[in-house]
Amino acid sequence: MSSLDAYQHRVELQVNGEQRTVRVRAAETLLYTLRDHLGLTGCKPGCNNGDCGACTILVDSQPMKSCLMLTVEVWGKQITTIEGLMGTDIQRAFAENQAFQCGYCTPGFIMNCEGLRHAYPHANEEIVRIWLESNICRCTSYEEIHRAVKDVFTPHTDK
């Protein structure tokens, strides 16, 4: 055992429905574990202090800023990243409404929207607005993002 191993903890994670085991330092954030150890780069480092939301993931269906969570804190919890939402109606709504410019913040907004859907499946305009305040788009695609999220919460009827 190397001296580095003495400072690492073995952690079992449930990520996107798959059991994963990693060795991490006690102070390592979930953001860097997901990106550096598991290759899940959809969550992005932005501000690294919880303000921008680019690193948003779901932990037990609740949106969380992965830059603020230690990996050792999520043992036994269900973690969902943007990679776990491939092909969902939320992603389609963002694409159809062109709710992105550079795309850096998009995964965080989509994850927040998915968390909103779990917490408030019939969210009204005010609830959507409040939830979207936790993420920042530096390219200012807020109108398109709002339209995409509204699309997800508006029942569609076939004519």
Rank of each mutant, 00 (worst) to 15 (best):
I57Y: 04
Q91L: 11
N124G: 14
S61V: 03
R35F: 05
I79L: 15
E96V: 07
N112P: 00
P45V: 05
N16P: 12
R20M: 08
R35Q: 04
Q14I: 05
F109Y: 15
A99K: 09
R35K: 00
T21P: 07
R92G: 01
V22I: 15
C102P: 04
V59A: 02
F100M: 11
H9N: 15
I110V: 12
D89P: 03
C113N: 01
A99F: 04
T106Q: 14
G53I: 08
Q98T: 06
E125T: 10
D36H: 14
R117D: 05
R117Q: 12
T81N: 05
T81W: 02
F109H: 12
D51Q: 15
N112Q: 12
Y104T: 03
Y7K: 09
R92F: 00
F109W: 15
N124C: 07
R25H: 10
F109I: 14
C55A: 07
M69K: 06
A93D: 06
G39R: 13
N48L: 14
H118M: 01
F94H: 09
S66I: 14
A26N: 10
M86P: 05
V11H: 08
R20A: 01
G84A: 07
C47M: 11
I57D: 05
V74R: 02
G53S: 10
C55H: 08
E73D: 03
P107D: 10
H37Q: 15
I57R: 02
D51P: 06
E125Y: 07
V128M: 13
E126V: 10
V128A: 11
T81H: 03
R35Y: 01
P107I: 11
M86C: 12
G87Q: 09
V72G: 10
Q62N: 03
C105H: 03
C102W: 02
Y120I: 09
V59N: 01
C43K: 09
E83W: 00
L68Q: 04
E96I: 02
E28N: 15
T21A: 13
I79S: 13
T88Q: 01
Q91D: 11
R10W: 05
A99I: 06
V11P: 12
C43S: 15
A93L: 03
T29W: 04
L13A: 07
L34M: 09
T56G: 08
F109Q: 15
V22C: 14
